[in-house]
Design a protein around this nucleic acid. Sequence first.
DNA 1: CGAATTATGCTCTCATTGAGCATAATAAGG
DNA 2: CCTTATTATGCTCAATGAGAGCATAATTCG
Lengths: 341, 341
Amino acid sequence: MIADGDGHSTDIPATAPGRPPRVAAVGLTAVIVAVTDEVPRILSVRPADLSRSDGGDGDALPFGPFDPDRHRTLDSGLRRLVAEQTGLDVRYVEQLYTFGDKDRHPDESTGGARLLSVAYLALTREQPVHGSGDVRWRDWYGFLPWEDWRFGRPGCIDDPIRPTLLRWIDAADDAGERRGREERAGICFGLGIAPWDPVRVLERYELLYETALVGEAPGNRSDSAPEALPGVAMALDNRRILATALGRLRGKLAYRPLVFDLLPGEFTLFQLQRVVEALGGQRLHKQNFRRTLVANALIEPTGRMQSEGRGRPAELFRFRRAVLRAKPTAGVAMPTLRPAP
Amino acid sequence: MIADGDGHSTDIPATAPGRPPRVAAVGLTAVIVAVTDEVPRILSVRPADLSRSDGGDGDALPFGPFDPDRHRTLDSGLRRLVAEQTGLDVRYVEQLYTFGDKDRHPDESTGGARLLSVAYLALTREQPVHGSGDVRWRDWYGFLPWEDWRFGRPGCIDDPIRPTLLRWIDAADDAGERRGREERAGICFGLGIAPWDPVRVLERYELLYETALVGEAPGNRSDSAPEALPGVAMALDNRRILATALGRLRGKLAYRPLVFDLLPGEFTLFQLQRVVEALGGQRLHKQNFRRTLVANALIEPTGRMQSEGRGRPAELFRFRRAVLRAKPTAGVAMPTLRPAP
DNA sequence: CGAATTATGCTCTCATTGAGCATAATAAGG
DNA sequence: CCTTATTATGCTCAATGAGAGCATAATTCG
């Protein structure tokens, strides 16, 4: 190993040199995504024996320890974990982020060791799950309701969020701090001149977390409890992980053809558009969406048609794999919403 | 990272339920970046007592154990690690990726535990370092020489890389596999019609690693040793981490104003351009670069001038902080190089 | 003073993208 | 059968942004 920190002056004495570093428990957390009926869903488990004091109530993301003896890589460990807990064979897997904050988990439940969690994003098609516990698909936007603009500006922005942010802004110490907060809130939620940026999911979540949980200012406790955060709560920092995943997915859609891992092998262009809209949380211009797909040669016609319901039948397409290795950037457009939609 | 479907082969029974998860050693690795004299540099340490059999020779990235008792968060742990080992106060820190492959580290050196490493990108201005070991700044492109196109197409692409790739392509089992390899190589290194994409640093490194280290095909050992990989070698998987960092940094430059953390408070537009070029590994059109900066309001004039050497004196600018919170995307342009520059 | 050198302003063109009109193909209802 | 509603698909137009290069300004060097 490379020379470890020997005897530097620190608040807490370092470990004795030569000894292996102090260990922390390492876990894997999975955000498993599917889209059906224009609803983006994530897989959640509801542990029956989870004590309420554990940092949150309700659902949790599939989680399991990373066992170095069983898994050669983190990726394979995650695939195995998902298969064991849900019976799913996911089509795409990507590491998101490693969470290791002290306050993310009470130390008792891991025998005193800090719990480090490597979070993953996994994509699949919605299918029945057979897990050991209470495993089921849940609407992603149930946990982050302010992120879905498909049916207009979400109501929760005007009611709980905006006033809370305004109070937080007013509680700033000086004018400079006030201005900073005002700008930050404006950019995050598109309140001022700034447009709504679908990708800034994590920034929004963290702003809400700060303002609703910590209160207005340090040492200035407000009456707003953690429950003031809109949307369904989750265990531990699982909602933060959800926000990380949604932001990453939205960002990556624009330059990587990930959508097709959420779709069946053949699909109409409108079905594809609906999935993209569901993930992006906003509506897209139909003709322009099609034009981009054709221009980027992301799809190829199968020749078959699908006539469902009224109207002219739509042609069925499939993903054109060759594109994966041709264009440096091959994805579906995801414009930033203008201030006044 | 595109998921590879490996790793399911290791069938080892799961740990007994209820027991705390098996622990792995967790470390932090830092890619500390500075740019001076148009050379992008990273900080490296050269451990004197490192045995050559340890997975590579020569330099290593600053590394240290993550001690949960001392650090509330991974970020703070990294900042402390960097300060202790190098005396630097970095200006920007971002988590990159967590590496945990089995073959990244021999198990003996950690007392049998798997070494997991959370890699970070850190930006600073170049300054003297005072570490305990042999700590110094090194040219980033010394480790990844094929990434620097500022002085034309790098020679190593035509000499060691291209022939190696061609042999690898020829060694494919069937025509389909062959075509796949051909495309992959073409896209990575801009050999065919595909342009050179500066961001695909990691893809290129992994392709080189596969072809040079593993040999042409499974079971088909070639004469190419690990040393066939162009550029200066590093310990363990540190070069992979370097590639991850460079790719992330190049990608993020375009939409986040990270460059300014590498620059002094006041700078000329051309100095700024040189830093961006150094990181991007390619030249930029001077007038268009300036136009973009002005259009995005990323900078503001200080009124002062700098006359250095010949020619008309340049105006000094500073970063306009307000932009951080206004535009959803505020960065410097980084075009993908055309096939024939 | 003239040549070389660097900074800065401006134009021209082309590709991309937002927006919307127009047409095609089907089902449902009189 | 004919009309209307509905969905799919093709096409145009305008605004924007990016690539390329010419032109001008302000210096240093000989």
